[in-house]
Amino acid sequence: MQILVTSASGANGDGYGSLLSFSLDGTARGTFSADPRITDPRGLSVSANRRLLYVNSGSDRILALDAAGNVVRDTGEIPGLNAGGGNLAPDGTYLVGMRSARTIVAFDADLAGAPQNVLPAGVVPFPRGFASAEDGTLYLASGIGPGGEGENSIAVFDADGTPLASRFISDDALSPLDLAIAPNGNIIVSSEFPFRAPDAVTSIREYDRSSGNLVRVFAPPPGVGFHQPRGLRFGPDGHLYCVARDNVMAFDFGDGRFLDSVVHMPRLNGQAIVFFPLLAD
């Protein structure tokens, strides 16, 4: 098993603009795939059978890679896609956040055919991460965009895209950057509040799936660099991982303890994180 991280680049963060691989102990293994179609990558997701890795490329296309890093599926360029996060839905379709269109679209698992709108265009001012529960309920983080536009909330939709709640939570200390669903069904959100402020408070926040109430806050001890938190993922060990600027942080989800900075790489500028089998696994 390995940790894969997308690193943003250029005007989006002066990172590496690559899909990077790390051993579980944090040792850098290099670029997972050198395919030139992977540029300034963002969202990542792994198929249910663990054989395919879906990658949202800044070249306005979605790719699927095998364990050797070879591209085996490619949507081709889709002008204006501007893909952010990506997650596989319970029905196997691949959901992608479109930052410019302010919505979520779905691709068939084989990435053939045009994307289909899951939610209307402009459904939130700026999408900042989403996840689908087993019953199809879709939770969408609505955050602040690069130009300062947006809001700090979570919207909820049923499996048909019908709005259930425009503001699922009430938390004046939240500015969401990614969202995941925990094994207990609660909603986990990475946050930087106020967004891009020099003195922003960074944290990971857990909300009750029924009430939207804040349950607890995950944060490393003072002095541990935790800046620009983005992608969230639960590892095979059950721990909660968050990729951030220069680091990947690990927390014990059971008791909330900060465990370690399992990856440290200057200029990482991580956007998404997944765990993917090694070729020999």
Results as ranks from 00 to 15, higher is better:
residue 164 L to M: 13
residue 162 T to W: 09
residue 148 G to K: 05
residue 129 G to D: 04
residue 144 I to G: 02
residue 129 G to F: 00
residue 162 T to Q: 15
residue 171 D to P: 01
residue 152 N to P: 06
residue 140 L to S: 01
residue 139 Y to E: 03
residue 131 A to L: 01
residue 172 D to I: 10
residue 172 D to W: 06
residue 156 V to S: 01
residue 172 D to L: 09
residue 135 D to L: 08
residue 158 D to Y: 07
residue 163 P to H: 03
residue 149 E to S: 07
residue 154 I to A: 06
residue 135 D to T: 05
residue 165 A to T: 09
residue 154 I to M: 05
residue 164 L to D: 05
residue 162 T to V: 15
residue 151 E to I: 12
residue 159 A to Y: 10
residue 145 G to C: 06
residue 172 D to Q: 08
residue 169 I to E: 02
residue 132 S to Q: 13
residue 133 A to G: 08
residue 171 D to E: 04
residue 150 G to R: 02
residue 171 D to V: 00
residue 151 E to F: 09
residue 161 G to W: 00
residue 136 G to Q: 14
residue 171 D to C: 00
residue 152 N to E: 14
residue 155 A to Y: 02
residue 165 A to M: 07
residue 156 V to Y: 01
residue 168 F to I: 11
residue 142 S to D: 08
residue 164 L to E: 12
residue 170 S to G: 15
residue 166 S to T: 15
residue 150 G to Y: 02
residue 147 G to I: 06
residue 150 G to L: 01
residue 129 G to T: 07
residue 149 E to Q: 10
residue 151 E to N: 14
residue 163 P to W: 00
residue 153 S to Y: 08
residue 128 R to E: 12
residue 159 A to S: 14
residue 134 E to F: 10
residue 147 G to A: 04
residue 134 E to T: 11
residue 169 I to V: 08
residue 164 L to F: 06
residue 143 G to C: 13
residue 153 S to K: 08
residue 154 I to C: 03
residue 147 G to V: 11
residue 154 I to E: 09
residue 159 A to Q: 13
residue 135 D to R: 09
residue 160 D to G: 05
residue 131 A to K: 06
residue 148 G to H: 07
residue 165 A to F: 05
residue 172 D to C: 07
residue 164 L to S: 09
residue 144 I to R: 07
residue 133 A to N: 11
residue 136 G to K: 15
residue 168 F to T: 11
residue 156 V to R: 03
residue 149 E to D: 12
residue 130 F to M: 13
residue 132 S to N: 14
residue 156 V to G: 03
residue 148 G to M: 08
residue 157 F to N: 11
residue 149 E to A: 07
residue 137 T to I: 09
residue 160 D to A: 04
residue 152 N to D: 14
residue 147 G to T: 08
residue 173 A to C: 10
residue 134 E to V: 13
residue 137 T to Y: 03
residue 169 I to F: 00
residue 143 G to T: 09
residue 144 I to M: 09
residue 166 S to P: 10
residue 129 G to H: 05
residue 128 R to F: 07
residue 166 S to H: 12
residue 129 G to S: 04
residue 130 F to A: 15
residue 129 G to Y: 01
residue 171 D to Q: 03
residue 162 T to N: 15
residue 167 R to W: 11
residue 166 S to M: 13
residue 158 D to W: 04
residue 156 V to D: 00
residue 159 A to T: 13
residue 143 G to V: 11
residue 150 G to F: 02
residue 144 I to W: 06
residue 165 A to G: 07
residue 130 F to C: 13
residue 167 R to K: 15
residue 159 A to L: 11
residue 128 R to A: 08
residue 142 S to F: 04
residue 169 I to N: 01
residue 138 L to F: 00
